[in-house]
C-alpha cells in the first residue's frame, strides 16, 4: 500500500501540485480538495498534467468543493473520481499514511 497525497491549493497559484507529483510514487493516490479541485477541470492548463498523473495514480477530487465552486461532474476530466468526505476517509484508511501538500 502507499501514500494518499492531498493537494488543497490552486495549481494556478501555487506549486504544491507539481511538488506532490514529483514525489508521489506510482500506485499512490492523489486527492484534490479545496482550491486544489480547479486542477481537475477539463480544458484547463493543468489538464495534461492530471491526465499524465492518471497513468500512474488514482486521481480523486472532493465533490463538495467542486460543487461549492460552481462545477459539476461534466466539467471534470474523465477518469477523475469525485468523492465526498466519507470517501476521503476511506482513501485515508486504505492508504498507509497521508501526506498533505499544504
Amino acid at each position: 500500500m502507499s501514500i494518499l497525497h492531498t493537494v488543497n491549493k490552486s495549481s494556478f497559484e501555487k506549486s504544491s501540485l507539481d511538488s506532490c507529483l514529483r514525489y508521489a510514487k506510482d500506485g499512490s493516490t492523489l486527492l484534490l480538495y479545496e482550491d486544489g479541485v480547479y486542477a481537475a477541470l477539463k480544458g484547463a492548463a493543468s489538464e495534461e498534467k492530471i491526465k499524465s498523473a492518471m497513468q500512474n495514480h488514482k486521481v480523486c477530487a472532493l465533490g463538495p468543493d467542486l460543487k461549492a465552486r460552481g462545477f459539476s461532474q461534466d466539467r471534470v476530466i474523465d477518469g477523475v473520481s469525485l468523492i465526498d468526505y466519507a470517501g476521503f476517509v476511506d482513501l485515508a484508511a486504505e492508504a498507509e499514511k497521508v501526506q498533505a501538500w499544504v
Partner: peptide
C-alpha cells in the same frame, strides 16, 4: 482558510464511519 472547515467535515465523516 478553509482548513478548519475541511477538517471538521472530515472528522465528522471519520466518526460517522465508526472510526
Amino acid at each position: 482558510h478553509q482548513a478548519s472547515d475541511s477538517a471538521y467535515y472530515f472528522t465528522k465523516a471519520v466518526l460517522e464511519k465508526g472510526h
